[in-house]
């Protein structure tokens, strides 16, 4: 673990901003869960509660021109990048005002302006896509990096290994961020691979592999900054492994009973929000009122976002025939 990286004091305003972003993700997910139970969300949800520090830490180290690919558990990455919760809720509600006009849902959400190239419904699929985006960024002359998030489960896919090999060969500006939440769907890590540190797989591809406490947002941000600088300097990709844990099941509705209660309790006691807040209290003597203020702000923001999303129209059925092609050649390609 690279705890030493996060030893220097955290600036108070910066720390509060990071904390607010994590609270926003946490509450976005909790409220999405309630909204799904209330019947407003017809499709899948894979909540990232517990993994907020990876999203916020990585995104906190990125530049405007950087691009990202994400996973089925992508709401945090998208919010960490600065996406609009109202348009995200609208997409989850399958409304025209959503990010994807109601055609994608949770698993396919994008924000082109933010360089967020999409969540993905296929495990490991975002990895080659980010690798290719990095190739084009390099061809265009550099200055930006591509980042791809994936879980421990994805590191058993061929797409992971093929991509890391390609990126190291071509020294592409890409950051491979593994959120090791210790489970590939319902399967514990020691039942799907014999290694403990996914970062060890970097050695096969001649790139640095870094293990970081994924529940320490400051540490995550530091290792991401270093990897990004290396990439921008033309030194190629880095594999970052952020050790973390999802507080809930694989998807909304999975109770996660395959996980030992003591393991869950141990990780709940290492909650990423509390880790940062503990530091802010220690270093800046913040009190509960300050924490409540952040929570209230976020709650109001999400109230407004949900209200806006609920007002958005449902798509007209025949819109299902649009956007199959950029150029359908007068409709001929649709027949």
């Amino acid at each position: 673990m690279t705890d030493s990286l996060s030893d220097k004091p955290v600036d108070k305003d910066e720390g509060l901003q990071l904390y607010r972003r994590m609270v926003r993700i946490r509450r976005f997910e909790e409220r999405a869960s309630q909204l799904r139970a209330a019947g407003l969300i017809p499709g899948f949800l894979h909540p990232c509660i517990g993994q907020e520090a990876v999203a916020v830490g990585v995104c906190g180290a990125l530049g405007d021109g950087d691009v990202l690919t994400s996973t089925h558990r992508g709401h945090g990455h998208m919010l960490g990048r600065g996406a609009d919760p109202a348009r995200m809720y609208a997409e989850l509600f399958a409304r025209s005002g959503g990010y994807n006009h109601g055609k994608g849902g949770s698993l396919h959400m994008i924000d082109v302006q933010l360089g967020f190239l999409g969540a993905n419904g296929i495990v490991g699929a975002g990895i080659p896509l980010a690798t290719g985006a990095a190739l084009q960024l390099k061809r265009r002359g550099g200055g930006s990096v591509a980042v791809t998030f994936f879980g421990d489960g994805a590191t058993n896919e061929g797409s992971f290994h093929e991509s890391l090999n390609l990126a190291s060969l071509w020294k592409l500006p890409v950051l491979y961020v593994c959120e090791n939440n210790l489970y590939g769907e319902f399967t514990r890590q020691d039942h799907h691979q014999v290694i403990t540190d996914v970062a060890a797989r970097s050695s096969s591809y001649g790139m640095p592999g870094v293990v970081v406490d994924g529940n320490d947002v400051i540490a995550v941000r530091e290792v991401t900054r270093e990897a990004r600088e290396r990439a921008l300097a033309g030194e190629g990709p880095t594999l970052i492994e952020a050790k973390t844990y999802r507080h809930r099941g694989h998807f909304e509705g999975d109770m996660g009973r395959y996980r030992p209660p003591e393991e869950v309790a141990r990780w709940m006691a290492h909650d990423p929000l509390d880790v940062l807040w503990g530091r802010l209290v220690k270093e800046h003597a913040l009190d509960e009122a300050a924490r409540d203020a952040v929570r209230a702000d976020v709650e109001a923001e999400l109230d407004a976002a949900i209200a806006w999303a609920k007002e958005q129209e449902h798509p007209a059925p025949e819109q299902s025939l649009e956007d199959v092609y950029v150029d359908s050649i007068g409709g001929a390609a649709l027949r």
Binding site: P128, L129, A130, T131, A133, Q136, E162, N165, L166
Partner: peptide, 21 residues
């Protein structure tokens, strides 16, 4: 010229196309 890695090759082409190639 890619290694013999068809998924990464096509994936890289798709990813590059997403950002303007």
């Amino acid at each position: 010229d890619t290694p013999i890695s068809e998924e990464a090759m096509i994936g890289a082409a798709v990813g590059a196309a997403l950002v303007g190639a």
